[in-house]
Write a protein that binds this DNA or RNA. Sequence first.
DNA 1: TGTGAAGGGGACAGATCTGTATACACAGGG
DNA 2: CCCTGTGTATACAGATCTGTCCCCTTCACA
Lengths: 202, 202
Amino acid sequence: MTAFPQTKDTTDKRAALLDATILLTQARGFHAVGIDAIAAEAGVTKKTLYHHFRSKEELILAALRRYDSQFRNRFLRAVETSGETPCQRLISLFDVARADFSATGFNGCLFVKAAGEFRGISPEILRFCTEAKTLVLEAFETLCRDADVREPHILAEQLFIIYEGACAAIHVTGRTDITDNAKAAAMTLMAPYLPAEDVSPA
Amino acid sequence: MTAFPQTKDTTDKRAALLDATILLTQARGFHAVGIDAIAAEAGVTKKTLYHHFRSKEELILAALRRYDSQFRNRFLRAVETSGETPCQRLISLFDVARADFSATGFNGCLFVKAAGEFRGISPEILRFCTEAKTLVLEAFETLCRDADVREPHILAEQLFIIYEGACAAIHVTGRTDITDNAKAAAMTLMAPYLPAEDVSPA
DNA sequence: TGTGAAGGGGACAGATCTGTATACACAGGG
DNA sequence: CCCTGTGTATACAGATCTGTCCCCTTCACA
């Protein structure tokens, strides 16, 4: 990456291409979006695109990596600063998720979409989606462990299921208020594991 | 449909085309599968395909309708015959779902995938996906109502979230055992609403 | 000042995709 | 017996998509 001297614009173009890929594939899917549209959205020519990435598949994989990194940085950081105690942070999980699910242009989880479009086509992309989601699940488990939950593995997976379910349900029904009910369900599931004072203000 | 006399083969070809569409789009996505592949899988020529359907979009829409009808017939009928009391039937929801989620070739919910690929491209397909999922949610609510649940609307939506979450989570992680934990979560959520004797044998 | 990487602009090849056209076969009903 | 509906087989038009190539400019750095 830094083996050769590169101007400031170089990384800008690359990042613009990745952002354009994320934006367009989120809106219309991976196979429905062409290389030309991505290059145009990034304000770049195809030449530049193929200078940075060897193929569309490589571009998509890089975009998913960027998306994963951005998501975990933003989401988990927001959760970590959202409450004073581990229990409060755990509870605020779905408050943080609400912003994502209600964002304009939200069109379902990008990894779920990628897994659906590339199974049997690009094992590499499918594998990365699996890994990215596994890391999210593990982050949930760390939160549970910090909160001294009795069975962190089980509760984390249940919260993960609800997180994914809210994501898919809002995506396909368009009703963003589902997040409220998802949070309520999460609180019910957490209740047996947490001290009473953290759960009571439901 | 029956306004003109038609041979037995006519509906066979049509159904074969719809089944091939469901099979291939489930495996590889909607935009990644071409008309030729669908016709070949159905053992039919393109001419026949375009005789029954005016466009790929119309074919996909018809396939989604067929899938929806098949799914509701099969899934809800299985649930309705799975227990003697409404409570038992409600609990067995995730036992019935387990078979679907563990089936070979399972690649996520077809409606979720369609919604992700056709938002901003085909409003008609997107709308049908929303309607189909809403009907599933309403079926859950009917089950809750039959079981004399206190707040059927809320519990049904929570079960729906878990159902969708298990579907997405298994799809992207490949771990079918997630269904067990989804059922456990569902039982926990149902517990406050149901008589103790139905919930205890967890 | 010269070199070479990065990028613009655009043409192009080759593949694939949707949808149509042509020519023929076959079955059933008036 | 002919007509219509349905089907096969295949070629084709037109669009689009991925990926390459050529020629030009700009700019950092040696």
